[in-house]
Nucleic acid binder design. Structure first.
Lengths: 388, 388
DNA sequence: CTTAGTTTGTCTATTGGCTAAACTAAGTTT
DNA sequence: AAACTTAGTTTAGCCAATAGACAAACTAAG
């Protein structure tokens, strides 16, 4: 029964959060606007706004237009009152951003990753992150957190349990980075942070339930249900790449058979291309061929599109989401995939579930994950604010 | 921005709910116990308990054992301060219960349903429910609500959009019952209320994330994620029966191919039995055969078990739940299904996700849905209490 | 250029829920 | 019987939100 009980401090925290939220959403706006918008009394708003100004999160930016009386004093959120670092750790690259608290990118940087052992990666990651932290301008809250997306299974404590493409098992990355920087660090799966990135900054802005499908060498998914990232009982869920779509299909390395990613990933595409003897074993070469009008290449992409559609239809039936967003490298093949994918999805999913659904592609391209990682850190900062 | 703002009344509602919850969970217990349990001040608890006693929800039941000082006055929840009606509307039956606010069954009743047109069903349903309402003893809150589970797609407004087995389309059942009884009515899918029933009263007691799989003529599912029933964007989700497990399998009436329910439902079992020429076209006859040692029948059940396992493995990979509960008629075949199902699930699901998972069968048998329907009404009553 | 009317934002007194601490009640232990 | 314990109530005070009065700053009509 360790439910937090209600006291006056709770009320103040709640209302402060409401005020801050309205400034974040609706800036520039006046105290009177906030009062009208939230239903809070003018005096209450005044008092809470003063606290926010004192803490450096909000500032006055001069007066606005009068509507027949005293001019309002406009307020805005001080995005530069703090900064966050987002990191996308790939199999052969590291991408990082330094953003302000609104997600505005101050610095962006990429490095190659030659070796992938935990120690070697950490050797590169540490100075990489340090340089981003060092570049943060002076601010009220400093660097409030570091978010990291990794291509693997991450537990609730931020340990990488299993990352086959990096060859990692049980790497306590969050602890290590926490110790190294003394700043809150949050590690999550690449698809999960990608989902957060697309929902906050990309094609899923404002959507309540959205499934992000990261189609790269494999398929990972991030589930946003009722506006929140859904994690399973143990903290990892959404391994939709290993949803079996052919129960009697070929075995997958995961132990199951006929997994979706065997049919619809970049790896599947490259395998089929190799069989057909076209391309040079890279997505780029096949994209170039398709672009150039090569029918065989286009047919290959259309086939992947159909396989994607089979899985997306399953997703639609299971989750009845508002949107499905296709991201990661395969999103670049949109022109050659989209029609086949939509057609297959529409043919296979339940009619009622298709009403109003949106099949989208990632707007942030290969930056979904970095931006989502930064947003993870920002969101955690706001959550700390709210509860203290 | 119509977030409810915080004021003192909110605090009181929250703390009252906390106190009531602890009485519900831990009765019998004293005011002092509640104070220790919740962290609320003794004075606060005394005051809130008095309000609850005044409203009739809680009562004193004499003194308990002293532990070296004044004897505590023990409190308990007054389950009979209100009643709820739960209804399970099947294709050829209606089952109903009248329960107290703790879910204790006061009256249980079943009727056959010969015709299934909306009008005819309503003609039977109305007096059926009325008789349950009439039997409710005098109480502080009276009959607080009516919950109904139906075999079909239900929208957020309680209209039955599509119930193929009843031949219904767009039947505004909730409105109709609401008008007829003037009591809050909640309609939901049979699998959803079944999930609620098993989680509250059955094998899923206290589990945070649980997937209930209702295996009858078809397969329906109820998703309980983070302690709450998950509904999709449009209010219907969890059509896992139409999750395709063989992308190139036979077409399903839903438009997709190779749907799970084509392989693992009662209908699938009966079809295979007919092919093999055993049984009499009923589940009962096949159960009798299996019971009697018929190897062919047992093999048939084992086959269904495997097919169930394929889908359950998908569920485990997608949701990483704490438990999967198999319910509805097919749960009676547990002895002949369980081993094959568990084996298949374990072979196919991701290792990390299997840790600590529980594969259960419905404890309430064919009463999961009625009890869940009643619980839906009870939960709505408590929710109303909390917000007013 | 008054003067009335509006709008913004602050100040003030009040309300109401929670709390610590004092207190009463009713037991047990030595 | 005195000393200690525990249960529950009473009391005084705190604090956040609020309604309403008010001051400040503006517009617009006469």
């Amino acid at each position: 029964m360790k439910t937090p009980t209600g006291d006056q401090a709770l009320i103040k925290r709640m209302n402060t959060a409401i005020v801050l939220e309205s400034v974040l959403q609706g800036a520039p706006l006046s105290r009177a606007d906030i009062s009208a918008l939230t239903g809070l009394n003018k005096a209450t708003v005044s008092s809470l706004v003063q606290d926010l100004i004192d803490s450096g999160l909000v500032r006055e930016i001069g007066t606005g237009q009068s509507s027949g009386g005293r001019k309002p004093v406009l307020l805005e959120f001080v995005a530069e009152s703090g900064y966050a670092v987002g990191v996308d750790l790939g199999v052969n690259y590291v991408r990082g951003v330094l953003t302000d608290l609104r997600g505005g990118v101050a610095v962006e940087r990429t490095a190659r990753l030659a070796k992938t052992s935990p120690d070697e990666v950490f050797g590169i990651l540490r100075p990489f992150i340090q340089s981003l932290v060092d570049e943060a301008p002076e601010s009220a809250f400093g660097v409030v957190g570091i978010g990291v997306g990794v291509p693997g299974l991450v537990d609730r404590g931020g340990a990488v349990l299993y990352a086959p493409n990096l060859g990692w098992r049980d790497v306590p990355l969050q602890d290590a980075l926490n110790r190294a920087f003394g700043i809150p660090v949050l590690i999550d799966n690449e698809a999960n942070v990608g989902a957060i990135g697309e929902r906050k900054f990309g094609s899923g802005r404002g959507i309540g339930s959205m499934i992000y499908v990261s189609v790269g060498m494999g398929i990972g998914t991030g589930l946003i249900l009722q506006k929140e990232l859904y994690k399973g009982a143990a903290g990892f869920s959404g391994e939709l790449g290993h949803l079996s779509i052919e129960a009697s299909g070929p075995p997958c390395r995961c132990g199951n058979r006929g997994c979706w990613e065997l049919y619809a990933s970049e790896q599947a595409l490259l395998a089929r291309a190799a069989e057909a003897g076209i391309g040079e074993g890279t997505l780029d070469s096949l994209l170039a061929l398709a672009e150039g009008g090569d029918e065989q290449a286009r047919a290959l992409f259309a086939g992947i599109g159909e396989s994607l559609g089979v899985g997306v239809a399953n997703i639609v039936n299971v989750f009845n989401p508002e949107a499905v967003v296709i991201g990661n490298t395969m999103s670049r093949a949109r022109p050659w995939l989209e029609e086949a994918m939509s057609r297959t999805t529409e043919a296979r999913a339940l009619n009622f579930h298709l009403r109003g659904i949106r099949l989208l592609f990632a707007e942030l391209g290969d930056r979904s994950a970095v931006m989502g990682a930064a947003e993870t850190a920002i969101a955690a900062f706001f959550k700390r604010l709210r509860s203290a």
